[in-house]
Design a protein around this nucleic acid. Structure first.
Lengths: 134, 134
DNA sequence: GAAGGGTGTAACAATTACTGTTACAACTCA
DNA sequence: TGAGTTGTAACAGTAATTGTTACACCCTTC
């Protein structure tokens, strides 16, 4: 478990895609949080090229169709760059296991993380919104 | 993800499988942590039926062959039960999106988590140890 | 049966990350 | 001009994780 940013970001983008004039205040009331939390996440999404906005002007717009935005795009935008499974530091290099454990687990965990990321790539904002409209 | 328990647990099990007489003190010196951290993780692994040990007797043993212990077994043993991607609480039910976002994301995130877990199920302690011995 | 050394576990400190919040500069538009 | 907004820094509160001390209880050996 990491944080709720991905879920908030998807919520935000779902709202924006149907109404590009919503202020952070209004979005916050739908998400049930503070407007600054919304602006913070919007800022990440903006840096990632997923949405645009103008200082002083309420609202923001998607830069492309929801079918072209994968959950992985959103995930990358709002998550700190770090490994899914961190590995303990400074294992004892004088030990047969300690000497190689970090490299071994790096390789192992990387494929697990990739499997997770591929599944996020298979899902788009559009598919989530379709589910919301069912 | 969140913590280094999975990587420490794999380290511990790799050591135990080649020497079932190692004390938590010795294991801790290979992992480079405090013996209590090792005993805490060993306790989880014991509850999960992956290893056995006796109070007062140094060492512990695997209950089955490393080829029968998947990384998912270890993951379940040492991780708090919780979702990979948590979802924000109390979205506004008066909003079209807020009303359904939690259920929708639950379904969506579940399949992502399953993809990750399946990859963990595909890897065994034996395969990790083979990599350590290369 | 006493001593030394283990395990199991509770309790607490230190650290870190996340969320919520206040504050404010800079900007837009009526 | 003034109300309302975005973008962002700064900080408090909370929660989770790890490391650590402490100690009851249990072997094993002498």
């Amino acid at each position: 478990m990491i944080n709720i940013r991905l879920s908030v970001a998807i919520h935000v983008l779902s709202l924006i895609s149907t109404d590009s004039t919503l202020s952070s205040e209004k979005i916050a009331s739908s998400v049930n949080t503070n407007p600054v939390v919304i602006r913070r996440i919007s800022s990440d999404l903006k840096k990632a090229g997923i949405l645009t906005s103008k200082v002083g002007v309420p609202g923001s717009s998607l830069t492309r169709d929801p079918s072209d935005i994968t959950l992985f795009d959103i995930y990358k935008a709002v998550h700190i760059e770090k490994e899914l499974f961190p590995i303990h530091n400074n294992p004892n290099p004088d030990c047969h296991v300690g000497k190689k454990i970090q490299h071994t687990l790096n390789v192992t965990f990387e494929s697990v993380q990739t499997a997770m990321e591929n599944e996020l790539k298979n899902k788009t904002l559009e598919s989530v919104m379709n589910h919301l409209n069912e």
